[in-house]
């Protein structure tokens, strides 16, 4: 088993590339990232420029997704809003993943009292709905982008700790870890060279799923007025603005909602595909 586990990483990514669903997910994600990063090139209109003469317009050649009640171009707002959504969507799980993996691996490898203490805190944090933690942090630290990232990282950290710890516990049983120790390697090297590479799969799976959750939660917090602050657009606060002008135009709500759904869908499916790709028993079957 352990012999097949080492090359599993490269073949897992290969399997993902060969799989049509995985490929489509990667393409959607690449397209969304490109649109967000190069937003000013694709959408010339200033996302915050108001023009009351052109308020609440339906989609047209000039404004692809129409305009909102202040006459702002929705297409431009969605693309620029995507920068915030994807930035938070990726950075919160990344931060949580780095911290959570470190803590989880150490807890699983060391065991004992430290492990029990860590798991007690993890259980407590896991019991709280992530959105509630987000509101709690926003209430304590004020609304805004940085604090949303902190809040979401706090909500995700226990999930990474749990998976990193569980994976470390199962890897630690493997004979090759004992062999590595027997050759006189230090604990730190054993963890870095032998434990980490073998648990990276499940962590990437959780990471990808958390990006989906993170995009959804950022949108929800911004919708509640606790995330990205106006006039800066984000997918959540575009819907919030749109709710005040539902009779005028449904387009901001629909366009932004579809953007969130698409992004969440792509990262969620990618997570599922990664999960299949990293599972050697399933890969052999296909």
């Amino acid at each position: 088993m352990s012999a097949t586990m080492i090359p599993a990483r490269s073949t897992a990514l290969g399997a993902l590339r060969r799989d049509p669903v995985g490929l489509i997910c990667l393409c959607i994600i690449a397209a969304l990232l490109a649109l967000a990063i190069f937003a000013p090139w694709f959408a010339w209109a200033d996302p915050t420029a108001q023009n009351v003469l052109r308020a609440s317009r339906p989609p047209s050649a000039a404004n692809w997704f129409g305009t909102d009640q202040f006459g702002r171009d929705i297409f431009s707002r969605i693309l620029h809003g995507g920068r915030v959504s994807l930035l938070v969507g990726i950075s919160a799980p990344l931060l949580a993943g780095l911290v959570g993996t470190l803590v989880g691996v150490v807890a699983g490898y060391v065991g004992g009292l430290a492990d029990r203490l860590v798991m007690r805190v993890v259980d407590l944090l896991m019991a709280f709905p992530s959105l509630l933690l987000g509101v709690l942090v926003a209430a304590a630290m004020g609304p805004g982008l940085r604090n949303v990232v902190i809040a979401l990282s706090l909500a995700f950290v226990p999930r990474f700790i749990r998976i990193a710890r569980a994976s470390t516990l199962s890897v630690r049983q493997e004979p090759y870890i004992e062999a590595a120790r027997a050759t006189g390697l230090r604990h730190r090297r054993v963890v870095l060279r032998h434990v980490l590479p073998n648990i990276i799969g499940p962590i990437l799976v959780v990471g990808s799923l958390q990006v989906a959750t993170s995009i959804r939660l950022e949108a929800t917090l911004s919708f509640l007025g606790l995330g990205t602050q106006p006039p800066s657009p984000s997918w959540g606060n575009i819907i919030r603005d749109g709710m005040n002008n539902m009779l005028g135009s449904p387009w901001p709500i629909v366009a932004s909602g579809v953007a969130i759904t698409l992004a969440v869908l792509a990262f969620n499916m990618l997570g599922d595909q990664l999960s299949d790709a990293f599972d050697p028993t399933r890969r052999r079957k296909s």
Partner: peptide
């Protein structure tokens, strides 16, 4: 899983 609840609510409302 993918459609945010508040977006679905807004669609129902519309």
């Amino acid at each position: 899983y993918c459609i945010p609840d508040f977006f679905l609510g807004a669609l129902f409302m519309l």
